[in-house]
Design a binder for these strands. Structure first.
Lengths: 157, 157
DNA sequence: CATAAAAAAGATAAAGATGTCCTGTTTCTG
DNA sequence: CAGAAACAGGACATCTTTATCTTTTTTATG
């Protein structure tokens, strides 16, 4: 239901959020996220054109988040590469329905609205800071560098 | 987010539900739902193989619902042609995550679960019987034949 | 300025989704 | 049984998505 491109874009911004506000090269992101480098480059171009990331060419260049992880929602990321298309009007083009969806399309659009709402309410910072034994992109929980922001921890085993 | 195939399949079963338990030919469904006939034929073949509809060849044949509209959920229809794929395990294949999703994939899967739940809770009968001025597939509200099941109505204008 | 690093852009390819057309097979009906 | 109606299936075409490779452009830095 979510495209590969969306999956890849989200992984990329998660990696960038870990390093934020430092830049990462496409190659570094590709390794950390296990996304094919050349394709990732295209995805990042899209995020760059959408203003989600800044790109800097040349030595010491790379990609970096344009906003802080606290301000960036996963909806913004998703909508930049593969927008959630709400059902605005009757897909059959029935004139009498117009913007007033039938019960079928009403439910479909309600589902889309629910996804949209969840994604709009989730920031990158939340994704990183949430206490969990499965840190995004990290094989070991202790590799999560954001753990330090939560203060001294007793190591989970 | 929902494929054309899903959209077409849902329109088709709505039309069949209107006529249930009578069969419709693929051509009749194609006209009522505004779906390309030849492609609809493929979609209906899928629904037939999944046991959602029965097909009958030859004169007076056609497609009919295998169940009553009260018993058929839109999730069953969707899953027959383009299954909602829940995220069962870490898409990166990280061993330490396993079935324990990270916060990112947790939210994505929660969204999928929400759609699944909504669709599982909606029967074709509900779609048809819901009071609305926009009856599925019908240009005029009064064309909804299920209106009769609700007993005598004062005609909305 | 020369060089190397890095993203941008373009060409191309493989796979899947969508859509069309034609032929084959089944089955009702007279 | 003959014929027509209807679905089944295969071949093919087109578009989009995903993916790769190569070349070009930009830019920091010695």
């Amino acid at each position: 239901m979510f495209s590969q491109t969306v999956e890849y874009a989200l992984r990329a911004v998660v990696q960038l959020a870990y390093k934020s506000p430092e830049p990462c090269t496409t190659e570094q992101i590709a390794e950390a996220t296990m996304v094919p480098k050349a394709y990732l480059s295209k995805v990042l171009q899209g995020l760059s054109r959408a203003g989600i990331v800044n790109s800097q060419r040349g030595i010491r260049g790379g990609m970096s988040l344009s906003k802080s992880p606290e301000e960036l929602t996963i909806l913004e990321v998703v909508n930049s590469v593969d927008p959630i298309q709400r059902i605005q009007q009757c897909p059959l083009g029935l004139k009498s329905h117009g913007g007033n969806l039938c019960p079928l399309h009403r439910r479909m659009d309600d589902s889309l609205a629910s996804v949209e709402k969840t994604f709009a309410a989730t920031t990158l910072a939340e994704i990183l800071a949430e206490p969990t034994s499965s840190a995004p992109l990290c094989e070991k929980p202790t590799q999560n560098p954001f753990i330090k922001l939560l203060g001294p921890q007793t190591q989970p085993d």
